[in-house]
């Protein structure tokens, strides 16, 4: 069965082989790439959610007037979180994959599909990294923002969700992009638990057709396309969050924004200043 294929391959020059591979393996490549992107995107999104949850808990202020139970519970939860971060940042993902997938099977008889295990592994791994990024993002927000929110009576959670997180998210967006790109590439280690993502598919194709270099070249191009597209999309999203550089004065905008609020009369800034300076010189 394999022999004619090998012969067929050897009869082609390099580019013809590439075209041939795309013809016979194109569907497999696409399926593999689809699974890779699915793993990376879902893993990054869930990882970010984990990161933000850990970030919230780590920044809950403990005050002297809080009840003892709250203090103790918070302390314990924080210790668990630090252990989680240190363990999952400090061990290779490929080993985590084996331990979680095969280990849980052998030790506790927990069976899950390889794909599901893949989602879990990427998510908790990204979560560990994102927790630290989120912490950095929250720290980067000026304390005045939190104080102003508290001063108008917002609770810790209201402050976090409406003031701090939107700004922290903007600041760590480049880091989220980094994580997404790393996940696209590093999901390849999941071939160790036979998740049929792009790298696993590539190895299968190599094993089927005995064509090594062109197959990996195609894989390379597919990975690059995916990562480049993602980084551009994120850039575009960053710009969108930043909003336009200019703003319209109320009532002067092209759509007549907030026309009803237009002030018929009133002090301009110059008038303010003149009036004040007159008063000041009168005082002296």
């Amino acid at each position: 069965m394999n022999i004619p294929i090998i012969l067929a391959a050897t009869n082609r020059n390099f580019w013809e082989t590439v075209v041939y591979l795309v013809q016979v393996g194109g569907k497999d490549f696409l399926q593999g790439a689809g699974k890779t992107i699915l793993l990376a995107v879902v893993g990054t999104v869930i990882g970010c959610i984990i990161g933000f949850l850990v970030g919230i808990v780590q920044t809950i202020p403990i005050q002297p007037r809080d009840i003892l139970v709250k203090k103790i519970v918070l302390k314990i939860v924080r210790i668990i979180m630090s252990v989680y971060i240190e363990v999952f940042r400090g061990t290779p993902m490929i080993i985590q994959a084996v331990v979680i997938y095969y280990g849980l099977q052998e030790a506790f008889g927990i069976n899950m599909t390889a794909m599901f295990a893949g989602f879990v592994i990427i998510s908790i791994n990204t979560g560990a990294y994102m927790s630290e990024s989120v912490r950095g993002g929250i720290d980067s927000i000026d304390r005045g923002q939190t104080e102003a929110a508290k001063a108008i009576g917002m609770t810790h959670f209201q402050t976090m969700f409406s003031i701090v997180f939107p700004q922290a998210l903007r600041n760590i967006l480049p880091q989220i992009g980094n994580n997404l790109i790393i996940n696209i590439k590093d999901s390849s280690v999941l071939m160790i638990i036979s998740v049929d993502e792009l790298f696993y598919t590539t190895r299968t194709l190599v094993g089927t057709y005995y064509i090594i270099y062109p197959t990996y070249l195609i894989t390379c191009v597919i990975y690059l396309t995916m990562t480049f597209t993602c980084s551009r999309l994120l850039r575009w999203y960053e710009k969108k969050i930043d909003g336009p550089d200019s703003y319209n004065l109320a009532g002067t905008g092209p759509k007549g924004l907030n026309e009803q609020y237009r002030r018929p009369t009133g002090l301009t800034m110059q008038m303010f200043n003149r009036k004040y300076n007159d008063q000041r010189s009168a005082m002296r």
Binding site: R65, I67, D142, G144, Q145, A148, A151, I152, G153, R170
Partner: peptide, 28 residues
């Protein structure tokens, strides 16, 4: 200073203006 007083309710009734303005940067 009593534990049972809700700080947020109190703060809502006492406004504060800061030296560094502290406007929320993510909002208009």
């Amino acid at each position: 200073m009593d534990r049972n007083t809700k700080v947020t309710d109190y703060r809502a009734k006492v406004g504060m203006v800061f030296q560094q303005f502290n406007l929320f940067n993510n909002m208009t």
